[in-house]
Design a protein around this nucleic acid. Structure first.
Lengths: 124, 124
DNA sequence: CGTTGACTTCGAGCCCGCTCGAAGGATCAC
DNA sequence: GTGATCCTTCGAGCGGGCTCGAAGTCAACG
């Protein structure tokens, strides 16, 4: 099992070291990241996998506080799967509704693009 | 041609009166909104149509400053269609890339949901 | 004529999610 | 050993996009 320094974990996850510390500080990690004897953070595979999950939730638009709630549930251990499920499903619904909306807006914008393409063609 | 008060325009567009004034202040409108003799804003159909466009751009994630740039182009009048086209196309690209990404993340989350559904089934 | 209420402007404040800098301690490369 | 590099914590700052409050004007209703 490999463990990474915060700088390496930053590269691996595409986040900054500042953000990684911030996530931990803000209660988004499942537990405090392990430390080396010298006190430096050591990111485990488990940490990295979890950060990947955070990234998924975040980049589908989940606010930090909801990610924290989810982390709290996972941290609490087995027994609250139904609650986690509800949280993820609710999120899923929101994201899908938004995808549909964005799709519709995008088509309207495409229509506009079509108009300009016509106009630019004319001009040439 | 109907014209609306700011309060009516807010209802119509789903924005707040604060936001409508903010958009104008921030140079997002094509021109200052007309005023009644008493100085109250009167939103024309053209204004509402434009606000709809702003909403489309905004809710597909375009930052305010880019909306302003686009408004500047439209305001400048005919002759810069190619530039407008470029702006919209670039935006379109970004949005599509993001849609793909969000879709991928969503599927990963769905996978997780599937796992929890299994677990909750087990428990019941 | 008074009061209610919708409107005006302006500037400040807020929330989110980072992002950064300072100050200090440890570690690595030579 | 010494200098560069990396780490730590803490708290402040920032950019975006609103959001709000204060203070004032004006018009309509009764």
């Amino acid at each position: 099992m490999t463990t990474l320094s915060i700088a390496e974990a930053a590269v691996e996850t595409g986040l900054t070291t500042h953000t990684l510390r911030y996530y931990e500080r803000d209660g988004l990690m499942l537990s405090s990241v392990d430390r080396s004897v010298s006190g430096h953070r050591r990111y485990s595979d488990r940490d990295l996998t979890w950060i990947e999950m955070i990234t998924r939730l975040r980049s589908t638009g989940m606010p930090i506080r909801d990610v924290r709630r989810y982390a709290d549930l996972v941290r609490a251990g087995a027994g609250n799967e139904a609650e986690r499920l509800a949280l993820l499903k609710a999120h899923r619904e929101r994201v899908e509704r938004q995808l549909v909306q964005v799709g519709a807006h995008l088509r309207a914008i495409d229509h506009k693009i079509g108009i300009y393409e016509g106009a630019v063609d004319q001009a040439s």
